[in-house]
Amino acid sequence: MRTTMLVLACLALPACGGDDENPSPEDYPECTEEGVLVLEGTLAGQEVNLQKQSQGYVFGNCCFSTGEPGSMELRLDARQEVRVRLEFEKTLVRGGTVEARGLVHLPDDGITAGNCETESLTGKLLQSSDGETYSFVLRDLRAQPYCGGAERKGELRGCYREISR
């Protein structure tokens, strides 16, 4: 009887698993290799499933002294251009999740989509409890220019595990 009640409670509560609006950690791609971006999803009717080696990342948490948004950026080529950027307006703590918006700019892979920086935060950014992995989902995507560009139906889910020092 207790097992049945626990299963029913878990089915009813988001904490036991995610939904489309509030994904749980299990809903994100798995990042097992250090320094590799894993990106999955559907964009404009096309399946996305790729892994790309990173040339580095920058993480700046939000709001401590400046009130400026936080960001996480990945550089994925020798030119050191930002190819993935997430922005958030609340402090991200280890094991926590914040609402986010961002962009993925991988034209060689046919993926260029993002959110307008003046629109609401419809995505999510999660940091693992050990602080080494960042997972994200981006929704309500548009083609360039991201403010006013054509809608790109679908969503992108990704993760990045930093390189151990």
Rank of each mutant, 00 (worst) to 15 (best):
V104M: 03
C10H: 04
R83V: 02
D20E: 12
C159G: 01
N115K: 04
D108T: 12
G70Y: 01
E87V: 13
P107D: 04
L74T: 03
H105D: 11
L92T: 07
Q55E: 14
G114Q: 09
G45P: 00
D109F: 08
E73F: 02
F136V: 03
G149D: 10
V7E: 15
G67T: 06
P145F: 08
L8F: 06
G149W: 08
L8N: 12
E34W: 00
G96T: 08
A78Y: 03
E68F: 09
G41W: 09
E40N: 11
R94P: 03
D130F: 02
V58H: 11
G17W: 00
V48S: 04
N61E: 09
E132T: 15
L13Q: 11
A150W: 03
E151S: 13
G154M: 04
E132M: 11
K52S: 04
C147A: 10
A44P: 03
C16F: 15
I163W: 05
Y28L: 05
R94A: 14
L74V: 08
E30F: 05
V84T: 12
E132F: 02
N22C: 02
G154P: 06
L138S: 10
G41T: 07
D108Q: 13
D19G: 13
Q46Y: 00
E155A: 15
L6R: 14
S135D: 06
P107K: 03
V38R: 10
E30V: 14
M5G: 01
D109E: 15
L11R: 09
P107M: 07
T91Y: 10
Y134A: 08
G154R: 06
Q46W: 04
P25W: 08
L86I: 11
V93K: 14
C116H: 05
H105I: 04
E21K: 12
G56D: 09
T118N: 09
E21A: 14
F59C: 04
R161M: 12
D109H: 12
G148V: 07
T118E: 14
P145D: 13
Y146K: 10
V93P: 01
C62S: 14
G148W: 11
I163N: 11
C31G: 05
E33W: 01
Y134K: 03
V58R: 15
L8G: 06
C116W: 07
E40T: 13
